[in-house]
Amino acid sequence: MKSIDAVTEVPAQVPQFTARLSSTGRGARLARRLAVQQLAAWGVPYDSEASHTVAVVTAELAANAVTHGRLPGRDFRFSLLRLPGHVRVEVTDARPERLPPTAPAAGARSLETDSGRGLLLVSAYAERWGCEAWDACTKTVWAEIACR
């Protein structure tokens, strides 16, 4: 079972991409498109398994930030880091008091529910994922996806 771990220190020389996006559905969709575009710029083809996986995980984390981490007038930050052997997706929102559950709710496992399956997808696709609230104003939810 994958668990929430502490954020790993990232060396300064790691290729990364960061954007601030509106806390709206449009911002969440843009995060997914930017993720795939950035991976292609790093040499990961659009039609690769890694690209598809990063797109799904980015979409889920961004949707959660917009749905559960939104405050009026506050954007969310989306970052990609190209680490050896994997890509790290980070989404930072303005609600540090709303940490994701360490295990999805029991009802989330049912296909009949309208919501609650996002973290199941993240957990299934990511090698590791976690959450950190570094200050009183933000939290970052991250996931690491294999990318050879």
Rank of each mutant, 00 (worst) to 15 (best):
A94D: 05
P72S: 07
A28Q: 11
L99F: 03
L30H: 07
L81D: 10
G130C: 09
G85H: 00
L21P: 09
V91C: 02
V54Q: 01
L71G: 07
H86E: 12
P45Y: 09
V89G: 03
R88G: 00
A65R: 03
Y125P: 06
H52N: 15
G107A: 13
V89I: 11
E132N: 10
G85T: 00
A108E: 05
Q38S: 09
F17H: 10
L83W: 00
R128Y: 06
L61H: 00
P100A: 06
T67G: 12
R32P: 00
V87Q: 01
G43C: 11
R82L: 15
P84D: 02
R74A: 09
R95N: 05
A126R: 08
G25V: 11
S110V: 07
A28S: 15
K139W: 05
G69C: 06
S48V: 08
A65T: 03
D75Q: 13
S123C: 11
T53C: 11
P45A: 06
Y46A: 11
D93T: 04
V44K: 03
V44A: 01
A40E: 10
S110R: 08
E90N: 10
T138I: 02
V66A: 03
R70C: 12
T140R: 09
S79N: 00
R117I: 12
L80K: 03
L111M: 14
A28C: 05
L39W: 04
L39Q: 07
A62K: 03
G130R: 10
A108N: 04
E112F: 14
G73M: 02
A40D: 11
A108V: 04
T138P: 01
K139L: 13
F78D: 03
A62E: 05
Y125C: 15
F76A: 10
S22Y: 08
L83R: 01
L111K: 13
G73V: 07
V36P: 02
H52I: 10
T53W: 04
L99Y: 02
L120W: 08
A55Q: 05
A41N: 12
R20V: 14
S123I: 13
F76H: 06
G130L: 12
A124E: 14
A133M: 00
D114A: 14
V54N: 00
L120E: 14
R98N: 15
S115R: 12
A35Q: 02
G27H: 07
A31W: 04
A136K: 11
L30P: 01
P96K: 03
G27L: 06
P96A: 07
R26F: 13
S22Q: 13
G25Q: 11
P101R: 08
V54D: 00
A28G: 11
G43E: 07
T58W: 03
A133H: 00
E112A: 15
T24M: 04
F76G: 09
V141Q: 10
V44L: 04
V54R: 00
R128V: 08
T67L: 13
V141C: 12
V36Y: 01
S110Q: 09
V54M: 01
A28Y: 07
R98K: 15
N64H: 05
C131Q: 08
V91W: 02
H52P: 07
T53E: 07
C131T: 10
P84A: 02
R26T: 15
E127A: 13
S79M: 04
R32M: 06
S51E: 02
P72H: 08
W142L: 01
A136V: 12
L81R: 13
